[in-house]
Amino acid sequence: MDYFRPESLEEALGLLAEIPDARCLAGGQTLVAMMNTRIVAPPRLVSLRDIPGLDQIEALPNGGLRMGTMVTHETLMNLSANGAHRLLPETARQIASPAIRAFGTVGGALCHADPAADWPTALVALDASVHVAGIDGKRREPLAEFLVDALTTTLEPGEILTHIEIPPPGQTSAGAYVKFARVEGDFATVAVAVSLSLSGPTCEAIRIAVGGCSPVPTRDDAAETGLVSTELSEADMQAVGNSLATAIQPEDDGRASAAYRRMVVPGLVQRAITLAHDRASEARI
């Protein structure tokens, strides 16, 4: 294996292009664990840590956020954010443990695309999109499309996910990340991320993503639309919870059975919506 630490994106892209199975090294918190157990043995690693700007978070003029791929969980945990963007620190503080959070990166997590990881779920709820650079140019796509399957993204060999962009939070908005795991800091058995905004007492917009239950985070457009302009009554929440429990494609694994996930999704969805709703209502007052 060879190792490079380029100082520009262009140089990095060139190094990746030279060897077919070359891989980027971000925080390494998953990749090195896999190398230690010899699950992967990349012939080349291209460390992204000296490329300027990739560890920065930038507030966009429209109120949105643009963060570099090398932003760590720890940085996001300490982020002071507004409205629904508070979903970012809330999610970050539930990831693994302090040492992992200090080095693990949001970009690394998205590229690994573990269905039980936290960022895919939370960022899909925030309607994030990703910026990808390749030797032939750049593209931007919604995260929900970037995530194709378990451990699979649209990233082509030689490409680098450089930034993640999050649209501005709504006027009276809030988020909630409700994670159920075997132990604290474990990957999610089931996670529910909610981002919503209120207009007066009624729901103006809402996105609900369920993680840990399908190859990629699950949303139900129709059910979400059905909540808009309601006051998010218990019956409304139950209905969306039930429809999400049907929409997920869970499998039995070491964390729980598929059937169990279907059993708990409605209740956890209700908890997450209630939490976000309460937070947004408080913000409104």
Binding site: G28, A33, M35, A99, I100, A102, F103
Partner: peptide, 8 residues
């Protein structure tokens, strides 16, 4: 704080 086993 860092995991020495996860840092190359």
């Amino acid at each position: 704080p860092a995991r020495a086993c996860l840092m190359l």
